[in-house]
């Protein structure tokens, strides 16, 4: 009798702690600087962050990549996710959001109605971004076309369908620290780190994950199975890629490997984004990749 009361007490305390620890944590007004955004810079952030690679329709090219109506599917071990409509449509897109809604979504993974987003949306990496960059991105997104395609619900089974549990996932696997740390990094490598670890979210595909979908930071950019089940996504750390810095930078602009084969698959689309950035940014990404351990 006494034992079962203790057990019951532990369960209640555990459940209460789990509930508190899993609470969504949106940004507060105090986190958000009051400034007028730079739309042109927001476009640069848009290309660096690769938004169109998930939120435009499959096979879109040219200006169609600016119509962020969603719909692409992302199979995983936990179910199939569908990119939502993030166009400026007020009903089916995010046209009626506030700046704070957007910033909490993209940097904290919390929706305007206070629920966790699934980490297929790489807010864990965008959390490393400068908040002013994300404000500029929000300003740019609002200039893009509206599209009234409804978002398709994710196809995720129990227990992953309980979004509250993602609060614990975030505590376990998100990390505010940079992977490449140190006070002696050059400005160029620091810019590359920002583009790779914060905006470009390269690790989302190029780093392997544990059984619960958390990134294995110890195997940073070492390559990973393709979640579609076909083939592998190659490693791009020095142990796995022996291209020169100049070759990497050129590849990110024109899509040609050092032996002049061309990028294919998902990477061809990544290059469509990254080729919009200034040469200095591609050089910075290359410098960062070569500065990783083993380079």
């Amino acid at each position: 009798m006494r034992f079962s009361r203790v057990l019951l007490g532990l369960i209640v305390v555990g459940a209460a702690a789990g509930w508190l620890l899993s609470a969504p944590q949106p940004l507060t007004a105090a986190d958000i600087p009051d400034r007028s955004p730079d739309v042109a810079h927001g476009e640069q952030v848009f290309w660096a962050a690769g938004c169109a690679s998930c939120h435009s329709v499959e096979d879109a090219s040219g200006d169609a990549r600016l119509v962020l109506s969603g719909g692409r599917s992302f199979p995983s071990n936990f179910g199939t996710f569908y990119a939502p409509n993030i166009s400026s449509d007020p009903q089916h897109g995010i046209g009626d959001w506030s700046e704070a809604d957007f910033l909490s979504a993209v940097m904290r993974g919390v929706s305007p109605d206070g629920r966790h987003y699934y980490p297929v949306f790489p807010y864990g990496t965008y959390a490393h971004a400068g908040i002013s960059d994300m404000q500029d991105l929000w300003a740019f997104l609002q200039t893009l076309p509206a599209d009234a395609t409804p978002s398709r619900p994710h196809d995720v089974g129990f227990p992953f369908s309980v979004r509250r549990g993602l609060g614990l996932w975030k505590r376990a696997f998100l990390n505010e620290d940079w992977v490449v740390d140190g006070s002696d990094l050059s400005p160029q490598v620091m810019r590359g780190r920002y583009l790779v670890e914060a905006l470009g979210h390269c690790a989302e595909c190029h780093t392997p994950r544990n059984a619960l979908g958390g990134l294995e930071r110890a195997n940073w950019l070492a390559g990973a199975p393709n979640p579609t089940g076909e083939g592998r996504i190659p490693g791009i750390s020095p142990a796995h890629l022996n291209w020169t810095e100049a070759d990497i930078a050129a590849y990110l602009g024109d899509g040609f490997t050092p032996d002049f084969d061309s990028a294919g698959g998902e990477m061809a689309e990544v290059i469509t984004n990254i080729s919009q950035l200034p040469d200095a940014d591609r050089a910075a990404i290359a410098a960062y990749l070569r500065a990783l351990p083993g380079g």
Binding site: D254, S262, A263, G265, A268, I271, T272
Partner: peptide, 12 residues
């Protein structure tokens, strides 16, 4: 760069 884009656009 446009040439590489065309190669990648098909290989994608």
């Amino acid at each position: 760069r446009p040439l590489g884009g065309a190669c990648g656009g098909c290989h994608r």
